[in-house]
Computed example of a mutant assay.
Amino acid sequence: MYWGVKDTEIAYIIVFDIYHNTVLQHEWKVKNNAINIPIADFEKRVYTLTIKSQVQRVAAKFYKQWCLIQTKSAAKYIDWII
């Protein structure tokens, strides 16, 4: 999903759950207008993402869900951001 983030040396990333509890708070460098946020351990629910830097502020909601897919070797769980 495209969040519209811009390259910056330091971006403050905060993820809140639906009750506005902080689930993740970290500082990352944004490179190539992209950022990877580790959500594998998040529960299946709606979250609010806030990215703050010197050049911008981005806020968005996303829904974390998982599904089970069957491959030739084994079943795998996949995380999705919608």
Results as ranks from 00 to 15, higher is better:
Ile18Gln: 08
Tyr12Ile: 09
Arg45Lys: 14
Ile78Asp: 05
Glu27Pro: 02
Tyr12Lys: 15
Asn32His: 12
Lys64Trp: 01
Lys52Leu: 02
Ile82Ser: 14
Ile35Arg: 07
Leu49Gly: 02
Tyr2Ala: 13
Phe62Pro: 02
Gln70Asn: 12
Ile39Val: 13
Thr22Lys: 09
Phe42Leu: 13
Phe62Gln: 09
Asn33Gln: 15
Tyr2Val: 10
Lys6Ser: 08
Lys44Ile: 11
Leu49Gln: 01
Trp66Pro: 03
Ala11Met: 04
Val15Glu: 00
Val5Pro: 00
Gln65Gly: 15
Ala59Val: 12
Ala34Asp: 11
Lys6Trp: 01
Asp7Asn: 15
Ile35Met: 14
Lys61Ile: 05
Gln54Asp: 12
Ser53Asn: 03
Arg57Met: 12
Cys67Thr: 09
Tyr12Asn: 14
Lys31Phe: 05
Tyr47Gln: 02
Val5Leu: 01
Asn21Asp: 05
Ser73Ala: 14
Phe62Val: 06
Ser53Met: 01
Ala60Gly: 04
Trp66Thr: 14
Trp80Thr: 13
Glu27Val: 10
Ile78Glu: 06
Ala59Cys: 10
Thr48Tyr: 01
Ile78Ala: 04
Lys44Ser: 13
Asn36Gln: 15
Val46Cys: 13
Gln70Arg: 15
Pro38Ala: 15
Ile39Lys: 00
Gln65Arg: 12
Thr48Met: 02
Ala75Gln: 12
Ile14Met: 03
Ile37Asn: 04
Lys44Pro: 08
His20Gln: 09
Tyr19Thr: 05
Ala40Trp: 01
Glu43Ile: 03
Lys44Gly: 09
Ala74Glu: 11
Trp28Phe: 10
Gln56Arg: 03
Lys72Cys: 10
Thr50Lys: 08
Gln56Gly: 05
Asn36Met: 11
Asp79Gly: 07
Ala75Lys: 11
Val55Phe: 00
Glu9Lys: 04
Ile10Asn: 12
Cys67Gln: 05
Asp41Pro: 01
Ile13Lys: 05
Phe62Ile: 05
Tyr63Gln: 10
Lys64His: 07
Lys76Ser: 13
Ile81Tyr: 01
